[in-house]
Write a protein that binds this DNA or RNA. Structure first.
Lengths: 188, 188
DNA sequence: TTGCAAACTTACTTATTAGTAAGTATATTT
DNA sequence: AAATATACTTACTAATAAGTAAGTTTGCAA
């Protein structure tokens, strides 16, 4: 694949995760890459197109990660820990996640992009639900709620906390993430 | 105060909460109200100005609500329940809250608007923290975490769940909110 | 060496945006 | 009756947006 194409996707993702979809333009990308505006249209005819491609790339990345963890035999606790690390990394880099960045803009996104975004949310939520359920069966996790509800609670917390962290200064993000894991620990 | 001014604020708030700050224009408001673009500039010279006013209005509304609950002697459980009702109402109306709508866009908002938004987040978080802390002292709530962390967890969940609800179809929002309250119930 | 495709640039169009300056109608005050 | 303030409209400007059509360079294949 083309290096330029990959750089556009990477930069576009960063712009979405920092400024937001409607606040970035092809100019932001072209000036950063030292190319012309039309060069981006060469790879991605429309902005919708670029948006959709970015989401698709993220889905792929997520599925590779979970696939890897499962094939390496990570237990559920280890898997959840690894998953949460994505968010602590995002927090360090002052970025949000793709779902948290594009979600707010669904009313101004194309059908295709929305469809991919929904697919991504559902894939993440399904993985988290399954991991929580099988982890509880094995006694690794303990929680009262339905796995789906618990998954939604955890995912919501992670997504929104990245936003909140940019608004409320004194957040200790690590203790926040610890609290999520701690809450799942079975009583001795 | 002017009725037109109030209508502009109300419509602006709705647009921010549905489309997002960068996706709505003065045109959206003027065409809806049957006035000209410039009429909005008469009341709000700049879009930043309108944004800031909308946040200020929301802060006022929140402080009136909490003030009312306290003066009427609502206990902590009742107060939290009422607070959560704001979000179930938003969910019914397919809207997000102001913090959840503007938060994603802080990198493209004016200093003033960001300052007011931060103030709003801190006011909400402080109220929630205090309510959780005093509720736990009275035995109304039970939770392991620091009140501030717990407040952040709950607020994050509420904010993000409004976003998630628009992405993941099968969410039962009521059970989601129930789970938050249920989690705070002391063991018998 | 010619032909052709990939990877762009140049130069543009069209649409939309926030914002402004000057004018107008209406009601209120002096 | 004259002056003034309120609440706008008309008519625009300047900037930026996405997008396009046609041309250019470069490397490779026939």
């Amino acid at each position: 694949m083309s290096i330029t194409r990959e750089k556009i996707i990477e930069l576009g993702e960063n712009l979405i995760r920092t400024k937001g979809y409607n606040a970035f333009s092809y100019q932001d990308i072209s000036s950063e890459l030292g190319i012309k505006n039309a060069a981006i249209h060469y790879y991605f005819p429309s902005k919708e197109n670029l948006g959709t491609s970015i989401v698709k790339t993220n889905i792929q990345r997520f599925e590779e990660m979970t696939g890897n963890m499962q094939s390496r035999g990570f237990d559920e606790w280890h898997q959840l820990e690894t998953f949460i690390k994505i968010y602590t990394k995002s927090h360090r880099e002052q970025k949000r996640c793709i779902v948290g960045s594009l979600g707010p803009d669904i009313n101004s996104l194309s059908e295709q992009t929305v469809a991919e975004l929904k697919r991504m949310s559902e894939i993440i939520l399904k993985w988290l639900t399954d991991t929580l359920a099988s982890g509880r069966e094995k006694g690794i996790f303990a929680f009262k709620e339905e796995p789906q509800i618990k998954a939604l609670l955890i995912l919501s917390s992670l997504i929104a906390s990245l936003q909140m962290a940019r608004l409320v200064d004194k957040i200790e993000y690590k203790s926040f993430c610890n609290a999520i894991l701690e809450d799942l620990k079975p009583a001795e």
